[in-house]
Each structure stands twice: as C-alpha cells, then as structure tokens.
Simulated assay, not measured.
Amino acid sequence: MRKILASALALVMVAALCGYGFWTQQRPEGHYLSDLRIELAVDQGVPGDRGNLLGVEPLLYPGDYQNLQRLHRKLAAYLEQARALGLVNARTVVVLPEHIGTWLWARGEKNELYQVTQRREALQWLELSNPLRYGLAMLAAEGDDRRADAHLRMKAEQMATDYQQLFGGLAREFGVTLVAGSIVLPAPYVKQGALHAGRGPLFNNSVVFASDGSLLGEPQRQQYPDSESRRYIHNGRQQPLHVVQTPAGRLGVLLGSDSWYPETHQQLASQAVELVVNPVYLPGKGSWQAPWRGNRHQPAATYLPLKRGEVSEQVAWHRLTDTTAPMLGSMSVFMRGQFWEQGTDGQGFARQSGRLLTGAPSAGARLLNLWL
C-alpha cells in the first residue's frame, strides 16, 4: 500500500511540475490601444547644412513592451510625425531617454504582468513565469540588491538582441543617427558588429546607432549611478567617456546624472566634442517641481555647487547641466509615462550659444528640435 501511495504521489508531483512547466511557456497577448500623438515642444533655429538634434520624449507604459512590434509602432509613429514636420534628414541625431531599453526585461511575458498595478506584483509574475532563468540569475547576481540584479540579468542576452534589432532598425528605417537612450546589461561588449551581454556586474549603457543600423563606438557606461540604482548598477568610471563622429558633428553622451559633474564634461571637451546629449529617467510623478534629491552616495556630489533640497529638480538640472565649453548644442531628454505605480517626470530642454530652451510644459509625448 505504501508503495502504491508513494507512486501515486510521485505521479501527482510529476504532473504538477509538467503542468507548471507548460504554464510558464504560455504567452497569450491581450488587447492593446496606444496614443500615438506627440507635440513639438521646442523648435529652435532654421534648417541648414549642419543637421539637427531631435529629442523624442515618448509616453510609454508596460504594455508597450509586451512585444517589439508594439514598441516599434509607437516610436516609429513619433519619428514619422517628426519627418512630416521636416525635422528628419541624413544629418539628424535622434535622442531617446534613459532606460528606454532597460524595460525590455518585460518583453514577451504573461498578460498578468502588464495588468497588475504594483511593480512588485509584476516582478513576482516575472519570477514565477521564468523559474529556471531567475534561479540561475540569482546565482550570478552581484551588488547590494541581488534580486533587482537578477531581474535584469535573467534575460540580458535577449534584451541586448532586442535592443539592437529595435533601435538599430529605427535608425536604418529613418536614415538617422540614433542615441538609443540606455539599457542595463551585465558587462556588455560588441563582437562582429553585434551587442552582447557579458558576465560580470551590471552597467547602465548607452549605444549610438548609425544611419545604416550599425553600432557607432562601444557601449558608453554611466559614470555616476544615482542613489537608488547604485545598489545593483556599478559605476563605469574604469571605462572613460568617448566621443563618436556623426554627420552632424562629434557627439558625446552623458547618461542621467553624469551631466551634473564637471569631470564628465571635461572628458568630452578634451576630445573636441561638438554635441552633448543627456538621456534622463526621473522617477516619481510631480518630482520635477519637488526638492532636488541630489546624489548623496557619490563622493563627487559633495563638490557640486548645489546642496540636496536647496532647489527644485528642475532648477538643479538646468543649472548643473550648463557648461562653458564651446559646442554646437546640447540636449537633455526625459522619459515620460507610467510603469505600474511609478510615474516619471521631467521636461526636456536644449542649449545653444548659452541660451536655455525649454518650451511649454506638458504631460504628453514631446519632440525637441534644435537646428545646428
């Protein structure tokens, strides 16, 4: 009798495991509607031979990341509207916001992940739906927040491939140089023209794509991760900043709060930079007018001319990104949208000849154009 019961129990467990394994492979897609409107918030200068910086501040939600076709449809619609306004040409440098590629960890998951209202619930669905990937990622995780590390590490190679396919494809489709915001990957590297996730700590990286869809230079690592992400994202100061040649001029990328520090601007200036772009992700609805949070965990922040809470985020970003280095223009571009309970904020701005260009504030998707 005991043998029969043990055999029956084993069969039940095997059936349960098989059922769970089958369930994890199911990825049905739900109904999807998306707002493809975008407004031109800043349009400075007149068309010329030098080209232009074109910032795109997309309005994004978790459902936009369910598959690459959805995300491509929205971003391509924004760029198509910019082209209709005469803002896209062979010398255009398109700039997308920070972490637009990081959210690719949510690609291809179950409907429940996109439908819940709390990020912690979405991450629970991610873990339950990918038990083997998550388990292996936890074994390799580093930093103070191993769970957050594992969530990004578990699909890293897929994310790298998706990132290059999507943003390299958009650059080729519209014939532009494209600064693809950023993506968090473990020790990324380029081999035979393809972006790969490596083994090692996580870095926040920006990649620039040429108008034929190829990679321009190496992934640019963030130098000064902010106070929250530093628990799992490592600083990239061992890899110096570099400048890439584009049809519009020599381009440098400063990720997020890297634009606050004089050292980063000096690194780019020493390489005869002509254009500086700053993809930004500012979490928290209403944070643009809230007191500046600073970056108290970075020793270099103690030398900044502003103290934490002294001014608003808006004032801090406007002041700290200003530089006296001569250049054709600069632009900061912010992520917009809602990712579960966490909203985003920030109004993109540009600079040219010492003049700050902000445009009217709005809550929707925005275009920022600066003729060079």
Rank of each mutant, 00 (worst) to 15 (best):
R221P: 15
G213A: 03
K3Q: 15
L36D: 02
I38T: 11
G359F: 05
G175L: 09
G169M: 07
E228S: 08
L68I: 04
P305D: 02
L255W: 01
P225T: 14
P225A: 13
D212M: 08
R296L: 15
E274P: 00
K74M: 04
H234C: 13
A365W: 03
R120D: 13
S362V: 04
L304F: 14
L5D: 12
S211Q: 10
A6T: 11
R237H: 09
Q220K: 12
V184A: 02
N67D: 09
A325N: 12
L54W: 03
S362Q: 14
G101M: 06
L357T: 04
G364C: 07
L370F: 04
G198M: 09
E263A: 15
A15N: 01
R50A: 14
P186A: 11
R199M: 00
Q66V: 00
D145W: 04
R366I: 01
G217P: 02
H31P: 00
A122V: 03
T321M: 11
G329V: 12
P247L: 07
Q158K: 05
G256M: 06
L304V: 12
E313G: 01
R120Q: 07
F22L: 05
L136Q: 13
E121T: 05
W103S: 12
Q238G: 14
Q342R: 14
T264R: 10
Y163K: 14
H234I: 08
E341L: 13
L170P: 08
L370W: 04
R107G: 03
Y78W: 06
R2T: 15
A140T: 15
Q238M: 07
G364I: 00
S259Q: 10
M159H: 02
L33Y: 14
P58K: 01
D345I: 02
A10H: 05
S7I: 02
Q44K: 05
E142H: 08
L216F: 12
G284I: 07
T246H: 11
G286F: 03
I233Y: 05
S287F: 02
P97W: 06
L251T: 07
G348T: 07
E173Y: 06
A194E: 13
M159Q: 14
Y303G: 13
P240W: 10
S227L: 10
P225M: 11
T92W: 05
F174E: 02
T92C: 13
G359L: 09
V207R: 01
F167V: 15
S7N: 11
D145F: 03
F334M: 08
R355I: 03
L320S: 02
R70Q: 11
M13H: 10
F339M: 15
E109N: 05
Q66P: 00
D64E: 03
D43K: 08
L202C: 05
S211P: 08
R319M: 13
G337L: 11
G48N: 12
M13P: 03
S330H: 05
A248K: 12
L104E: 00
E263M: 12
L275Y: 09
Q222S: 00
A84W: 05
G51L: 04
